[in-house]
């Protein structure tokens, strides 16, 4: 007589697994990858390949030689972290800097906390902030977007980002109209499509939104985080714009420039470092939105979403404790 397996129920399992989730995230990033290659050419491809390669390499080496545990590079999480890191740097960043960033992303922000699922902060963002603080010059010299096949701009030159222009302008006491009239300032449609200076993945709001909708449909992220971040930034920007339109630019500018969309859709939604429950996700998103706008309007950096996400990451355990899912039968009929 053959022996039967004894185990507790359930005896069947759904089709979800970690690799599938990571692959979905990669698919969602494809539009933004293509746009970055379109505007920044082979430089973009180079940055992505180096970041992904280095991330997987470090994960492998650390798991094999330092932790001496199972190797999990095939689950795809290192590749996702690599692409996200690449999305957060300028296309002309030197290779060795990127490798250092990947080392911090994987080694410090992910592995030292125990690997996938245990990291309190978004690893790619830690890597990015490390690079920003260590190499401020290179990390803020942005190549100007140069559409493939467009011949009028031949040499890769660098230029300020829209947010950089804004911060500089406001600092110099210019009015919003004067700042917008700056010839280097990208036009509205360009900001939407991604035809402007910036880090690889952040330039095209459209491509990022497409990826975001894809992830929501595939249930890899919940809409609560991105929507609450974007709405909060919009409302805050609108309030200040209404108070003083010559000092505070209109909200759409904030939405479609800088890393807001990238952060809201791909960075803040990282499962591991964001809250678990829907109400908590909204609190988290509103917090990120508020901190972002505060840094953008009054902080020293032109961009604030990276710091905002990392700060709110730190609050995630508290939010998880305070905001529980809606329990069944808690409210009496």
């Amino acid at each position: 007589m053959s022996l039967f397996t004894i185990s507790g129920s359930p005896h069947v399992h759904g089709e979800e697994n970690v690799k599938k989730i990571m692959l979905t995230v990669v698919y969602a990033m494809v539009p933004a990858m293509l746009v970055s290659i379109y505007f920044f050419g082979l430089d973009a491809l180079r940055v992505m390949l180096i970041a992904v390669g280095a991330s997987i390499f470090f994960e492998y080496v650390i798991q094999k030689y330092l932790i001496k545990g199972p190797i999990t590079i095939t689950d795809g999480s290192a590749a996702v972290a690599g692409i996200l890191l690449a999305f957060n740097v300028p296309a002309n960043v030197p290779a060795w800097m990127l490798v250092a960033g990947a080392l911090v992303t994987i080694g410090v922000a992910k592995m030292s906390f125990g690997g996938l699922g245990k990291n309190p902060f978004n690893p790619a963002l830690v890597g990015r902030v490390f690079m920003l603080i260590s190499f401020p010059v290179q990390m803020t010299s942005w190549p100007v977007a140069k559409p493939l096949f467009a011949s009028h701009l031949t040499d890769a030159i660098t230029g300020p980002t829209a947010l950089g222009l804004l911060k500089e302008g406001v600092g110099a006491g210019k009015t919003v109209d004067q700042i917008l009239a700056d010839p280097q300032m990208p036009q509205y449609l360009d900001r939407l499509m991604g035809n402007m200076s910036g880090s690889l993945g952040e330039v095209s709001a459209i491509a990022l939104i497409i990826g975001g909708i894809f992830m929501v449909i595939r249930k890899v992220i919940d809409w609560q985080v991105p929507v609450s971040i974007i709405l909060t930034v919009f409302i805050m920007a609108e309030i200040f714009h209404l108070i003083d339109p010559q000092h505070y630019i209109e909200p759409s500018f904030h939405l479609f420039s800088g890393g807001l969309m990238l952060g809201a859709i791909f960075m803040a939604t990282d499962m591991v470092s964001s809250p678990m429950n829907l109400s908590g996700k909204i609190v988290f998103g509103v917090g990120i939105g508020l901190i972002t706008i505060i840094i953008r309007l009054w902080g020293a950096y032109p961009e604030g979403i990276s710091f905002a996400i990392l700060i709110m990451n730190a609050f995630t355990p508290l939010i998880n404790n305070a905001f529980k899912p809606k329990r069944f039968g808690l409210v009496k009929k």
């Binding site: 979800e16 970690v18 989730i21 999990t72 689950d75 999480s77 125990g114 690997g115 996938l116 699922g117 245990k118 249930k219 499962m271 591991v272 678990m276 429950n277 529980k324 899912p325 809606k326 329990r327 069944f328 039968g329 808690l330």
Partner: peptide
């Protein structure tokens, strides 16, 4: 594998746990 904190278990729990 390890928990990736995806919260899918919470989403499907019919008792809201």
């Amino acid at each position: 594998k390890t928990c990736i904190r995806c919260s899918k278990c919470t989403v499907v729990c019919p008792m809201g746990l």
